[in-house]
């Protein structure tokens, strides 16, 4: 009896093994083993910031292209790219500087009074398609957190006190998912800066000065004082709005004190020695 059981089990096992072997041979798909290796070196967030569909797509692109030019994983940065280049034996495109998402709206609950009550689905895209928003500013942040939902790295949070999103410098990988998610184009990917020091205009309101100011205490009113102050031509004024070009800015900090509304933000700078300007800008906002 035992013998029969052993034999029959053995035969079933053998048949299954043959069948599995045949199936695996017949349906085998060849994949370059290096793709798997490269993929392991990547962060694995599948965020798509590199421009390829997920990390597997990027890994395949790295393996299949002759040079690594234009192939860069903004999440992993230069470290990851050097690992990839070691695996593939190709020169990595390591030129990119560390970048970061920056929220360009400072229309806090205090600075931007509400003029109606939004009662629809709490989603920025829906609110934006409906109307200008709960405040008089038709450019500013809704605060419903489409960017937070989009972020795959837990790097952006809504501050309940201000009602605005805040970026966590440590976690942000500059993948740009939040930029795409924001229906108002408030978030910009900017240079992270030495020691995380950055200067930027925290406003995207293109209304005329009076209208903008009426809607929000912290709005850029397009007065142009900062542009005059800048010695490097980094500040441009367009549609009543100042913009600081981070590729030209030398972080001299001369523009911030002249801003009458405190719309220019400085981050992670040491405190100023002398307090001469009337403008109080809240540094270390982020």
């Amino acid at each position: 009896m035992i013998l029969i059981a052993v034999i029959s089990l053995g035969v079933i096992g053998a048949i299954s093994a043959i069948f599995l072997y045949a199936a695996s041979k017949k349906f085998e798909v060849y994949e370059d083993p290096r793709i798997g290796l490269v993929q392991e070196a990547l962060p694995g967030a599948n965020c798509g910031a590199c421009g390829y569909p997920g990390c597997a797509g990027f890994a395949a692109a790295c393996v299949n292209s002759n040079t690594m030019d234009g192939l860069f994983c903004p999440v992993g940065g230069a470290d990851t790219m050097s690992k990839v280049s070691v695996i593939l034996g190709k020169e990595a495109d390591g030129s990119a500087e560390p970048m970061l998402a920056v929220v360009r709206c400072n229309g806090t609950c205090k600075a931007r009074p509400k003029i109606n009550r939004y009662d629809g689905a709490r989603n920025c895209s829906i609110a934006s398609a409906l109307y200008a928003g709960e405040t008089g500013c038709s450019y500013g942040c809704f605060g419903f957190g489409d960017c937070v939902t989009a972020c795959a790295f837990d790097a952006i949070r809504i501050n309940p006190e201000t009602g605005l999103p805040e970026v966590n410098d440590e976690n942000c990988t500059s993948c740009g998912l939040c930029v795409k998610a924001c229906p108002r184009n408030i978030i910009e990917i900017r240079r992270k800066g030495p020691k995380s020091r950055r200067i930027y205009v925290s406003c995207v309101n293109m209304d005329k000065g009076g209208t903008a100011r009426k809607a929000c205490d912290n709005a850029c009113i397009g007065c142009g004082k900062c542009a005059k102050e800048c010695a490097f031509g980094a500040i441009t004024l367009e549609y009543n709005l100042a913009y600081i070009d981070y590729t030209k800015c030398r972080l001299c900090r001369k523009c911030a004190p002249v801003c009458p509304t405190g719309a220019i933000h400085e981050t992670n700078f040491p405190p100023r020695k002398e307090i001469k300007a009337p403008a109080t800008n809240d540094t270390n906002k982020i």
């Binding site: 689905a121 989603n123 895209s125 829906i126 398609a129």
Partner: peptide, 13 residues
């Protein structure tokens, strides 16, 4: 549930 809100937005997208 705000069904129409989402459907309208999704349709546009």
């Amino acid at each position: 549930r705000p069904l129409t809100d989402y459907l309208r937005m999704g349709k546009r997208k």
